[in-house]
Amino acid sequence: MRRIISLLLENEAGALSRVIGLFAQRNYNIETLTVAPTDDATLSRLTLTTVAGDDQIEQITKQLNKLIEVVKLIDLTDGEHIERELMLIKVKSSGAQRAEIKRTSDIFRAQIVDVTPNAYTIQLTGTSEKLDAFIRAISGSTVLEVVRSGVSGLARGEKVLTL
């Protein structure tokens, strides 16, 4: 099952490598990973998605918690949550195609953020499924380049991950 784990990490050199190394070392997989400092400069927030069974996810969360630099951790998929991923996608667009791509972008509430006579760069935010669906929807066009941020997320309601 796909899981979204979000954790607060001491913003120190080498901390990220311990998290990533743990996954490699123990044969877990990381599907996506995103990390940046938070409003508190001493902390980074890291969100990762992984596919694992219940037993393995228990080990993953325990092992992550055991890392000295991991301050706090939450498995967002345990409860209701909001997840978002950002995608920038560069599509070849000329002639009649331009209008079609524009229409599809509007349907997905995507924004065209860069334009040249032959290409659009489109920005789209949403769940990973939505981004996948957009790529499928424009599969008639030539996709030149795709970059995705990986999943970020928060728990719904008043539940928070803070110190």
Partner: peptide, 11 residues
């Protein structure tokens, strides 16, 4: 890294 409880690089 995989065989220590923790490590420090002095800056």
């Amino acid at each position: 890294r995989p065989i220590v409880k923790h490590s420090f690089l002095i800056k």
